[in-house]
């Protein structure tokens, strides 16, 4: 009775039984989560320093002075990672799309393209990325190419592009195949050619659908740029290695890890957000 009278006079409505119950449950679960997290962190803080080697580890991995001294240089080395990343990503996107389309070819005359795409994807997906980088990064400059074409920057990036485009071609292919047959029927019934149907109807929807997966792959790519350090380019991991030798201390590696964390976590959250959004749309 009180409830209805309150709303009639425009006063804030008292919570319903259900709302009150849910509010209480929410508060309780928040409290439990906070307490258990605090306990876990406290345990770590107390227990880890009790390990016999903690002093030594702290000295060689978490040395504040070394971190301060090396961090700016690590950061500037990271710009090379970013440059390689931004050079490779668009190339991967385009190459992967081309390979995925070749993989989907149905016309008999174009069968060699399809065969090439199948072999390309199979081979590059089966070889560890680091091995592809070694083989191409060392192998091709070894042909005796002249500068700048013997640069490990170029061939290392090419190796990354090849390896990643094989994975992403498969992502695109799944996207293309996920578009319902009824969309193709509609496009064909309007007289659109196969090519127009692909370009205007299927691909735009397919690409949209795989965006979250693509973002995840971009995160992986950003980290895998560090693999190029094995064939020469002085990017952040290599720079950290140089400092490790110089200071006889592992802290620069921790510094590099911090840089990667800061760079990738927003992208990971963004991918989560996109995926949640798509799920919400699909269940609507």
């Amino acid at each position: 009775m009180d409830n209805t009278q309150n709303t009639a006079r425009g006063k804030p409505r008292a919570p319903t039984r259900r709302q009150a119950y849910e509010q209480k449950a929410r508060r309780k679960s928040l409290l439990i989560a906070a307490v258990s997290s605090a306990a876990a962190i406290a345990l770590l803080v107390v227990l880890v320093p009790m390990a016999p080697g903690w002093e030594a580890v702290q000295r060689s991995f978490f040395n504040w002075n070394v971190l301060v001294k090396t961090f700016p240089k690590l950061l500037s080395a990271f710009t090379l990672d970013l440059i390689l990343f931004f050079a490779a990503a668009p190339a991967i996107f385009i190459l992967a799309l081309v390979i995925a389309l070749m993989r989907n070819v149905t016309r008999p005359a174009l069968y060699p393209l399809k065969l090439f795409a199948i072999v390309y994807i199979d081979v590059l997906r089966s070889i560890p990325v680091i091995l592809t980088i070694y083989l191409i990064g060392f192998g091709i400059p070894g042909l005796g190419l002249l500068p700048p074409w013997n640069s490990p920057y170029i061939w290392g990036s090419v190796a990354l592009v090849l390896a990643y485009s094989a994975y992403i071609a498969e992502v695109f292919r799944t996207g293309i195949e996920s578009i319902h047959e009824s969309q193709r029927s509609a496009a064909r019934s309007l007289g659109l050619s196969e090519a127009s149907m692909m370009r205007y109807v299927v691909l735009p929807q397919a690409i949209r659908r795989v965006v979250p997966t693509l973002v995840n792959f971009l995160v992986a790519l950003l980290k895998d740029v560090a693999l190029l350090s094995f064939i020469g380019p002085v990017e952040v991991l290599r720079q950290a290695g140089v400092y490790k030798s110089l200071f006889a201390n592992f802290t620069p590696y921790v510094g590099a890890a911090i840089i990667f964390l800061v760079a990738t976590i927003p992208a990971i959250r963004f991918a989560d957000y996109l995926m949640a959004k798509q799920n919400a749309q699909r269940t609507r």
Binding site: S193, Y200, V201
Partner: peptide, 23 residues
């Protein structure tokens, strides 16, 4: 078709214009 099969990434007008423009 029974299930309409409009192209969901295009507005109504774009749906209508696609085939006359491309075909």
């Amino acid at each position: 078709f029974q299930s309409f099969n409009l192209f969901p990434h295009m507005t109504v007008l774009e749906n209508i214009k696609l085939a006359p423009m491309k075909v």
